[in-house]
Design a protein around this nucleic acid. Sequence first.
DNA 1: TAATCTAACAACGA
DNA 2: CTCGTTGTTAGATT
Lengths: 274, 274
Amino acid sequence: MAELPEIYQLSIQMNQCLTGKQIEHLEIVQEKCCNVSEQAFVSRVKRAKVKGVRNKGKWIIVSLSNGENMLISLGMGGDLLYFELAQSNQVQEKYQFLVQFQDCTGFSIKFWWFGKVYLVNEQELKEEKLIKDIALTPFDDEFTYEYFRSLFNGKKAGIKSFLLNQKNVGGIGNMYIHDILFKSGLHPNKKVSELSEEEFKKLYDSLLERLHYSLSKGSFSLEKDFYGHNGGYTTDDFLIGYKKSEPCPKCEEIIQSIKTGSTTSYICPECQKL
Amino acid sequence: MAELPEIYQLSIQMNQCLTGKQIEHLEIVQEKCCNVSEQAFVSRVKRAKVKGVRNKGKWIIVSLSNGENMLISLGMGGDLLYFELAQSNQVQEKYQFLVQFQDCTGFSIKFWWFGKVYLVNEQELKEEKLIKDIALTPFDDEFTYEYFRSLFNGKKAGIKSFLLNQKNVGGIGNMYIHDILFKSGLHPNKKVSELSEEEFKKLYDSLLERLHYSLSKGSFSLEKDFYGHNGGYTTDDFLIGYKKSEPCPKCEEIIQSIKTGSTTSYICPECQKL
DNA sequence: TAATCTAACAACGA
DNA sequence: CTCGTTGTTAGATT
């Protein structure tokens, strides 16, 4: 449940808050989350300063002054929280990973289920298979309609499967997708090869509208931002997602939850036909 | 229908017959079969001598004195035939590829569906993706029972799918497999993770027995060897393969043909249970 | 009848 | 709610 709006917001906040800070120490509670040992991790980042923070798809990349990069994936969700020792916002009780800066601030990460913090240098950053093939996100400037449309050339997957594939579009997960498809009038299993130009345009617009709308409200209300504040995009803002058995806001038909491959989908059987 | 016995026999004959001969000219009728143009092919092999011929799985590799290698795949079958100009065994009427040596002998290839003749140097030979991952064949000395048994560690595929995968075992196709599995008492879809040690041993023995037996009879009777002679392993030698509706030689049950994935399988429903 | 690559998809594990 | 790996399947190839 940390998709593009949440991750994007986090990376913006982290970039503003952490840039320039010097790493003092670091704690790895769960070594399985990392690609290197705690010892190696510490020795490679100690005394380095944060050069900047950005996102790539659902990943957060913390670049350091010495060329190292911390790659953070929240997996299925979790809390990535800022703290100030000896201030009101203390370190969260449980966490798997923690960084503390010289000024006694820092951040800790608690994964909900699976998460990762990898350390890679500039060269490894380019080759790291977990992130190298992640596509542009709808928040990127280059994500124009022409670009979006061209992604589909020659493809045959179902539209939901296609959009969730991070090699096609970065940042979309199984939460915002329901409303994006509903607003486009598309069934999750509709083959991309069967979409009309009209449908592609509607899809592009819905995609941007839903994600920007959530971002504008501070992202999802059940996730916390860097400072521990919940977002303002509540379940009331969902159009049909997770609204099983409720009436469709357009046609009053009853919303259904169906199995699409290995994920669940919420659809209006009247508005989204195959 | 050119599997290990046929290909192995061909490569032995070609090695004996062609080694030392110097290439005089070459003709590519269907350029799509090749990875380089006819012009490039000719210039890279002209005047080179045949250093040796061997097989890798179902591929035939003709190595030349100048470091070049011709990689031949008969695909689903075809005729690879020796000729002597001005002798009784003339060039076959239709062919897609032909090599002629200085002594007015040569060979021509007629694919009946898809086939390939690639030209690669020593370096490319190691990297060529079409052949680099092909596993040992049951005719290789290193194909011991211990080796064979170790292939299955941690695997979960169905046994037929596993054996036809050239990355596991080289040279097996959808013809000999029917009798190999029948003789082992194994259903094609049985998971390899569920095989007993007894079954692995029986499988190894059946595998070697069936393939060596065919080779000993000159391989399959509906295929021609390098000199145009048909093999002596006839459909009468099949145990149950292609014998739909006939009685099982062991238990008299009626042989069935079933769909297994995208291939057809012949099984005795009594002797080969899931 | 037969071979293999590819894309898409399902099941499983971490 | 994730993503990678492995295996399966349908389609295409000249």
